[in-house]
Computed example of a mutant assay.
Amino acid sequence: MRSALKWAGGKKKVIDDIKSVLPTKGKTRLIEPFVGGGSVFLNLDFDEYFLVDMNQDLINLFNLIKANPQQFIAQAQCYFNQEHNTPERYYELRKEFNGTSDTELRSLIFLYMNRHGYNGLCRYNKSGGYNVPFGRYKHPYFPQAELEFFAEKAKKATFVQGDFELAFSEAKAGDVIYCDPPYSPINRTSNFTAYAGNSFTDEDQQRLVECAESVKAQGIPTLISNHYVDFTRELYANAAKKKLFQVQRSISQKGKGRVKVQEILALYK
């Protein structure tokens, strides 16, 4: 099942690769410290899910869908018509989003902008303002079936905003952890990891591995996705298992930039 959200680096196309490496035997709860669009938890079967992300708007949206799905879907659908599919209306709503602290309104506009904004990006400026431009799609898709599926799956999930260390601090026997952090850049001169208004540094990547090593002693396995570059080759040198595969990258302004890149799954157990 697809996520209701367009999401840079979404894992829908590589679920089978993740399943082939992620230890699930005897595990009852999936923890995701970087839940993102949610494709992984939506396509894996566990008794419980503990899902964390730094993006407060994302977590608020997920909790709102979980709490009252039918009301949210009915209200969200009102934004998906030709009246709202213009640059003028998009920028009006983006301004309204950036100027309000109303969680419900922000969640509705967040979904609208995700589907009407450029290339499925989620990006904020240094002041915390959402700044993705209008996408100019003829008929933006309203993900009703995906929202309904999400709402059903979310009954077994807990969504929390916070740093990835929070997720690791909650881990216990019977858990398995899957990490999809902002990727280490292929080109260090054009690094883009500021999905939630903050950057994810090499030090953060190292801190993530340290968290994986720390819970390994409790019998809790951790699987990490990333680009396979010189930095990650060295970073994951001590992983118990590694899997390399090719992925088609489609979040690119120019068609020629949509090329296959090599990724790694590094398992700590």
Rank of each mutant, 00 (worst) to 15 (best):
Q161K: 13
D163A: 14
N68C: 00
H84Q: 07
F168C: 07
N85V: 03
Q82D: 15
L121R: 10
F110P: 09
A151P: 06
G120E: 08
G120S: 12
E165V: 11
F134V: 05
G99P: 06
M113F: 10
P143V: 14
F150E: 07
A154T: 05
R106Y: 01
G117Y: 08
M113P: 08
E170C: 14
F97S: 03
E165L: 08
Y79R: 14
R89N: 09
D180C: 11
A67P: 07
R123P: 07
K138E: 10
F110L: 11
L111P: 11
E146P: 02
Y141T: 14
I109W: 05
A173T: 15
P143I: 13
F150L: 15
Y124E: 13
A74P: 01
K66C: 02
Y130W: 10
Y137V: 10
N119L: 08
F72I: 01
S127R: 12
A151G: 06
E165A: 09
K155H: 02
T103M: 11
G162A: 02
Q77S: 13
E146I: 00
V132L: 04
K155Y: 00
Y137L: 14
A151Y: 01
C122N: 14
E83P: 04
M113A: 10
N131A: 06
E88R: 14
I109M: 06
Y124D: 12
S107V: 02
S169W: 15
G162K: 01
K138H: 09
E96D: 12
T103A: 14
T100G: 06
Q82P: 03
Y90M: 08
V176A: 07
Y112R: 12
V160L: 12
E152V: 10
F97E: 05
P140S: 10
T158L: 08
F150D: 08
D163V: 06
N98Y: 13
C78E: 13
T158A: 10
A74W: 00
Y90N: 09
A74Y: 02
F168P: 03
N68H: 02
Y130D: 03
N81C: 15
K66P: 02
N119D: 09
L111C: 07
L93Y: 15
L108D: 03
G117D: 06
L166Y: 15
F72G: 02
Q77G: 08
K138A: 13
K138R: 15
V176G: 04
R136V: 07
G135E: 11
Q161L: 05
N68R: 03
Q75N: 14
F168H: 07
V176R: 04
K155V: 02
F110M: 10
A157H: 00
H84S: 07
F150M: 13
Y90C: 06
G135S: 12
R94T: 09
D102T: 00
N68W: 01
V176K: 07
C179T: 04
K95L: 11
F142H: 11
K95H: 13
D175S: 08
P140H: 09
P87E: 13
I177N: 02
R94N: 04
Y124M: 11
E146Q: 15
K66W: 00
F164Y: 14
K66N: 00
F168W: 05
N81S: 15
S169R: 14
L108P: 05
M113Q: 13
N85G: 04
V132T: 09
Q71C: 03
R115P: 04
A157W: 00
T103H: 06
K126G: 14
R89T: 15
L111G: 06
D175Y: 03
F142C: 11
F97T: 05
Q144T: 14
